[in-house]
Design a protein around this nucleic acid. Structure first.
Ligand SMILES: [Mn+2]
Ligand SMILES: [Mn+2]
Ligand SMILES: [Zn+2]
Ligand SMILES: [Zn+2]
Lengths: 139, 139
DNA sequence: ATACAAACGCAACATTGTTGCAAATAATTT
DNA sequence: AAATTATTTGCAACAATGTTGCGTTTGTAT
């Protein structure tokens, strides 16, 4: 596990430090997305808030994670499963926020449908965010 | 104009005050969505920050405006064109953020396509956010 | 005009995000 | 392995954003 984490960091040209290892570990353990505040809490008092910000920033830039816009003004982050590197993300999947448990998950299997824009508009990126009740809360 | 504004407020069971009139006026003048900070700036020094928060809250609850999630952690608000009342919003249209001018607009004509979720998930609301270059920035 | 209810401004506070810099740590070279 | 170099970290100080309680002001209804 520790080996795997170091390997991921190196593959993404990130020097391996204890902070980055810890945060990456949280993402690997976690099914679903994490907000900045989640990470701060779960990482314990061990790391400075600023370090968390900078680590997420670095992970984002290297394409290790992607951000998920939410309606409550708190961006969530999730590991990129696909080959997103160098800031070029191509995870065109739908994101789901459960109103019961609050979890946010990537629905890797559900791709964002093509959208037809009015004349004059050109699309660069499309985000689709579905809210509702998740699988485990429904059963 | 002033008459129209008062009429809208009354129709939504909101007592008409100078703050609410001013903020509603901003929304009516503005083509596109406004963030909290936009409103604070454009309303001048006349109104307290707290009042802006509470006014937006009230407008939201009455279904006068709806919120638009963005990727940069700053919710934007736009007038509801359709009949959204009592918090029941049914504006199933796509939102567009221009990466050139920064404007966010409601594409009233473009409806969010139906989405097929995995077994066990039930959808309550679907948000679709497209970023790219808008009409006026493209010409 | 009066009485009642609602909204406002202010203050005080909590949370969230940003920046510069010196010390600590990691990577690279000798 | 030790020294050099590059990067990351924690701290401090700050800015921006959001929340709450409360007395005063303003709007609404009688
Ligand atoms: Mn995702
Ligand atoms: Mn809209
Ligand atoms: Zn759930
Ligand atoms: Zn534009």
């Amino acid at each position: 596990m520790d080996r795997k984490i170091e390997e991921i960091l190196k593959r993404n040209q990130l020097s391996v430090t204890s902070g980055r290892k810890k945060i990456l570990e949280l993402f690997l353990q976690q099914e679903g997305a994490l907000a900045h505040s989640d990470i701060e809490k779960r990482a314990g008092e061990k790391f400075d808030r600023v370090t968390v910000y900078r680590t997420l920033q670095a992970f984002l830039e290297k394409g290790l994670i992607h951000s998920i816009p939410t309606a409550d003004n708190s961006i969530r982050y999730a590991l990129c499963k696909e080959n997103c590197s160098g800031g070029h993300h191509h995870d065109d999947h739908v994101h789901f926020v459960c109103s019961a448990c609050g979890n946010t998950v990537c629905l890797e299997g559900v791709t964002v449908p093509p959208i037809h824009l009015p004349k004059g508009f050109t699309a660069e990126q499309v985000e689709m965010l579905v809210s509702g009740v998740c699988k485990s809360c429904n059963s």
